[in-house]
């Protein structure tokens, strides 16, 4: 028998798990749901006894719960988006002219090592992420920080890799533009 109960997990790791989920889901209610489902799944798991690092183990369960939640929330339906854009509203059109050249050439940014030390850069980035459509932001965050490769993320989210590339491209183009506007003050 273990002397640790699920209540101990909640007390000792609840806030950590919450922050982990919040960083990816960016919604307090969804993050709370993810933590609760993780703890409930943990009780039912036969393998919880004698875990040397419960936090690592709980975080592993949480990662799957986060993906479940993202799937249930519905990843934006890119197929519809694509056909909607197909005619004249290709999102890339605002960034490129009809010959495929940059409409506005990317600006020179400070070197990475300097930018990453800038509080202002990171807080602008945070706000730019918040401006993305929530579902797009979640897919993007999942992809940028998740240890899993794109293929398995797509499988778990039940979207095609092609759709994922299109959406990730949109997220990156949007963020890049937002950063130039609000960080570099173009």
């Amino acid at each position: 028998m273990t002397d640790k109960t699920p209540h101990d997990w909640l007390n000792e790791h609840g806030d950590y798990l919450y922050r982990f989920a919040l960083a990816r889901l960016r919604d307090t209610h969804l993050a709370e749901d993810a933590v609760q489902e993780t703890l409930l799944a943990a009780i039912k798991s036969p393998s919880f006894e004698g875990k040397s690092a419960p936090r690592t183990w709980l975080t592993g369960i949480l990662k799957h719960k986060i993906i479940d939640i993202i799937r249930k929330q519905g990843v934006e339906q890119p197929a519809e988006d694509m056909s909607q854009y197909a005619a004249e509203e290709d999102p890339a059109d605002e960034f490129f002219n009809e010959r495929g050249h940059w409409a506005d050439r990317p600006l020179a940014w400070p070197a990475a090592e300097n930018a990453l030390e800038q509080k202002q850069f990171l807080s602008v980035l945070q706000r730019c992420i918040e401006r993305l459509p929530p579902k797009l932001a979640r897919l993007f965050l999942l992809r940028e920080v998740h240890e899993e490769d794109n293929e398995s993320i797509c499988k778990e989210l039940q979207i095609s890799p092609t759709n994922a590339w299109v959406m990730l491209y949109r997220a990156r183009m949007g963020l890049r533009q937002c950063l130039e506007l609000h960080w570099l003050g173009k």
């Binding site: 960083a23 930018a115 990453l116 990171l122 980035l125 992420i129 993007f140 940028e144 890049r176 950063l179």
Partner: peptide, 13 residues
């Protein structure tokens, strides 16, 4: 810039 965004997103998270 895309590489920097990826690094910075990791930092924000």
């Amino acid at each position: 810039q895309l590489m920097l965004i990826r690094l910075a997103v990791g930092k924000v998270v």
